[in-house]
Design a protein around this nucleic acid. Sequence first.
RNA 1: UCCUCGGUAGCUCAAUGGUAGAGCAUGCGGCUGUUAACCGCAGGGUUGUAGGUUCGAGUCCUACCCGGGGAGCCA
Length: 501
Amino acid sequence: MKLDYTYIEDLSKHEGETVTLKGWLYNKRGSKGLYFLILRDGTGLAQCVVAKDAVDEASWEAAEAATRESALVVTGVVRRDERQVGGYEVQASSVQLLHRAEEYPITPKEHGVEFLMNHRHLWLRSRRQWAILRIRNRIIMSIHNFFQEQGFVQMDAPILTGNAVEGTSTLFEIDYFGDKAYLTQSGQLHGEAMAMAFGKIYTFGPTFRAEKSKTRRHLTEFWMIEPEMAFYDLAMNMELAEDLLSRIVADVLRESRTELEVLGRDLAPLERVRPPFPRLSYDEAVALLRSDETAEMLTSRMEALREEERALETELAENKKRYGQAKKSEKRRLDAREIAIRKRRAEIEEALRNLPKWKESARTFEWGGDFGGSDETVLTWHFDRPIIVHRYPAAVKAFYMKRDPEDERLALGMDVLAPEGYGEIIGGGERATDLAFLEKQVAEHNLPPEAFKWYFDLRRYGSAPHSGFGLGLERTITWICGLPHLREAIPFPRLIDRLYP
RNA sequence: UCCUCGGUAGCUCAAUGGUAGAGCAUGCGGCUGUUAACCGCAGGGUUGUAGGUUCGAGUCCUACCCGGGGAGCCA
């Protein structure tokens, strides 16, 4: 379809030509005879220069009347200008105001979390959210391309299920024509059935957990990608996870530079995400946690934080001295800096409160338990890329995991932990193939055997070795974008006590 | 469910128990190259709710409501 207007991302192809842009007013600066309209059209931002003597009266009035987020049509000549975002600006010859927006609640200044979350439907228009969610799109495309190129078949697991796989406390229960049904927690079991039919499959769908978690790494509704492969063992499974993550990061680095720049993401840690990822057995991970090396690393981290805090205090004191004689604009800058320093100091103080506890938790970690959030974070601090931890105690893993033939206490499970403290983004493993073992496991976990009748059939008719894993989409986005909280990694996050907008 | 921090103007935040302020946003005025533009003026408040202590409460006490961060659990 041929459009009668141009998208901002294509401006570079139209230098010197007259184009028409359609979008919304992101910000406006102006003086008596000149307005600078920053236009936003979803593909990028562009500055449109409206000079009073270069446009007709109606256009000038439109530029004057336009408020933030008003819908506009601007026609003008594209000019190269190094100073501008994207390198181009539009010298307007006409401006049309389609709709004059009411006073827009979100300003270019700072806002609190609650306010922004209540305005999530508008917050999406902000530059930072634009960058994050465009990267989300890039990651989704990258995942599909990776699997499709390798002959995986995308298959959907059901969202409504009758199976209460991991106990009912974390499941959303709904009324299903008088019966109980649940929103899926994982497509895992159905994925296995599909892998036995198609060889290599992956699911890509929403997942629901009714956990009353209030942390920066939990949503009640999130998206999960679950590949399941017949005849893959644990080693192949780990290699696939490593290749997938490396591919995703490479695609984002290549195709989403602008977005990463908007986010101010440090690229160096992402550029190191290449195979092979370090592999640690659970035994090795426990030993590392309890080691002197870990204790020393945490001590030096605490020292570094204390040093940073002292530097901030010094800066604060110096700014206070300068404040008296400062000009108004300088005072404003100092005020902003003071708020930033105070915020960072609060973060440091929280970290300094936590780190001794984390150190103690790592030091005294008992073999047999699952890693807590802090243990994962501490482990990843030792490495410069994602790490894979494998062969966990069977007791802390799901009933369908295959046991390690060399040590029956262990399950052939694996987790991939993202670097920079982001922690678990993948969980998976090799699945048990023996019918009698699975029946025993279901009984020991107090699960209703009748709900697994169909699943047991997979071990009756050509039971074969197979493996798979689940990748948490929002956690992956949070890590790659370097976000402090995963609520920004999905357009409309669903959290405990957050169902709107 | 538990621990912890917070709730003051539309927004972000100040205010020894003693006259509730600033910046941004909004309105008006000024400025022909601005980059979170800048300069001047103005309007804007039942300090989360309900009690209590006090000559006097934004500030202290009690309960409740709402939100942030964390634990457990997990992707």
